[in-house]
């Protein structure tokens, strides 16, 4: 049975409870992490006359994981190792020898975004990262 004189305790309990529930919110107040700024400053990219990825930048941002998935299947399962881009340009299909040849600054590029969104692609136990990262 709830008695009238218990009211302050109940309210106090509720306040503490809600405070704890909201812990993640007030703990992070003012700490919003800055949006990632992946760096495109690598020797290979500096040498490109046209600063272009294998596909358009917006497509790469949105779909590079699907593209990598296709790349992997084309090479491993079909033996097709040449990628023909939308604009007709051809690239060797390889995570180590294409993507990371241009983006040799993996720590300042891939990892910047991935740390921000909290994904950790488990490719680097097998695929060798470029020297610059160590």
């Amino acid at each position: 049975m709830i008695r009238m004189r218990d009211k302050p305790y109940i309210i106090l309990g509720l306040v503490i409870f809600l405070g704890l529930l909201a812990f993640p919110f007030w703990y992070n107040v003012g700490k919003a992490s800055a949006a990632p700024e992946p760096s495109l400053d690598t020797p290979a990219i500096r040498q490109l006359s046209q600063k272009q990825c294998v596909e358009a930048r917006s497509y790469m941002r949105k779909s590079h994981m699907q593209l990598l998935n296709d790349w992997r299947n084309w090479v491993v399962r079909d033996g097709d190792r040449i990628y023909v881009a939308e604009n007709g340009k051809k690239y060797e299909i390889s995570l180590q020898n294409s993507c990371l040849q241009c983006h040799s600054n993996k720590a300042q590029f891939c990892d910047q975004c991935h740390n921000y969104v909290g994904v950790a692609p488990d490719c680097w136990t097998c695929h060798i990262e470029p020297e610059e990262n160590k």
Binding site: W74, G79, D80, V84, I93
Partner: peptide, 10 residues
Amino acid sequence: VSKASRDPKA
């Protein structure tokens, strides 16, 4: 057409 092809040297 598939966007991948075999290396002509293969």
